[in-house]
Simulated scan of single mutants.
Amino acid sequence: MKVAIIDDEPYSREEMKHLLSTYEWVEVIGEASSAEKAMELLLTDDPQVLFLDIEMPGMSGVELAEALRKMKKRPQIVFATAYPDYALKAFEVEAVDYLLKPFDEEQLARTMERLKKTVAGENADGRESRSQGKLAVQDEDKIIFIEPEAILYIFREERETYICTGKKRYTCRLPIKELEAKLVTYPFFRVHKSYLVQLPFVEELIPWGNGVYQLKVSGAKEKIPVSRNYVKELRERLEL
């Protein structure tokens, strides 16, 4: 998820960047200190989400949000402000959420879940055209193209990324973070900083001590490590 932070206070921008850095599926692609500079950033970097302050010199955050409603493809808006009085106006301009400074991590976590679903829904609108594409992988001395649906899991080891299907293991030049972004319309889930798993192939979640688990994936001999930070969300995604 490509995010930009718009706030005239450098400290607030740094705090939000720090909080967002804990989400591996989020990339802060830019920041701006005013609504006017934000417009330039929108044209050059095309963020999917804006974390937007309200009280800024010149154009306010609400005025910027109103202007963005005229765009055919506009970013999602999360207001991040010290002022509670604009909440009603924020939702009139269809903001996803309204965060008050100082930021509460639990509230931010709920906002991020809402954003994940909203942006994934937007991406799914283009699923039909994108799902016709295939993933380029290295197979010995040639490049072949495989269907994303055939991938069991992906992992990174040293400087190589490996794509594992039920038949073979391939190498890929892209880091996991870029692959995760490319495969956003498919049911992949990050279970570890170095592992990405396609959820329909998960068969078992096995305790491994000290809050760590392993996954058994259909068609794979290897067990896949699950970091304790991902266990709760993984169970929520797997269970009815």
Results as ranks from 00 to 15, higher is better:
3 V>H: 00
7 D>I: 01
10 P>R: 05
12 S>I: 03
13 R>F: 05
21 S>M: 07
31 E>R: 01
36 E>L: 14
37 K>S: 13
41 L>K: 01
44 T>I: 13
44 T>N: 12
45 D>R: 13
45 D>N: 13
48 Q>K: 12
49 V>C: 12
49 V>N: 05
50 L>K: 01
51 F>T: 00
52 L>I: 07
57 P>I: 06
58 G>M: 12
60 S>R: 09
61 G>C: 05
71 M>Q: 15
75 P>S: 10
75 P>Y: 09
77 I>L: 03
84 P>H: 11
92 E>K: 14
95 A>V: 11
97 D>W: 03
99 L>C: 04
100 L>H: 02
101 K>F: 11
103 F>A: 06
104 D>T: 02
104 D>N: 15
107 Q>N: 08
107 Q>T: 03
108 L>H: 01
109 A>L: 09
111 T>W: 02
117 K>N: 14
117 K>T: 13
117 K>W: 09
120 A>D: 15
126 G>T: 13
136 A>V: 07
139 D>A: 12
141 D>Q: 13
141 D>G: 03
142 K>H: 14
147 E>L: 13
164 C>R: 02
168 K>L: 12
169 R>V: 10
173 R>W: 08
186 Y>V: 09
194 S>G: 02
204 E>L: 14
204 E>A: 04
205 L>W: 10
208 W>A: 11
212 V>L: 14
213 Y>F: 15
227 S>T: 02
227 S>H: 05
227 S>M: 02
229 N>G: 03
234 L>Y: 00
236 E>R: 05
239 E>F: 10
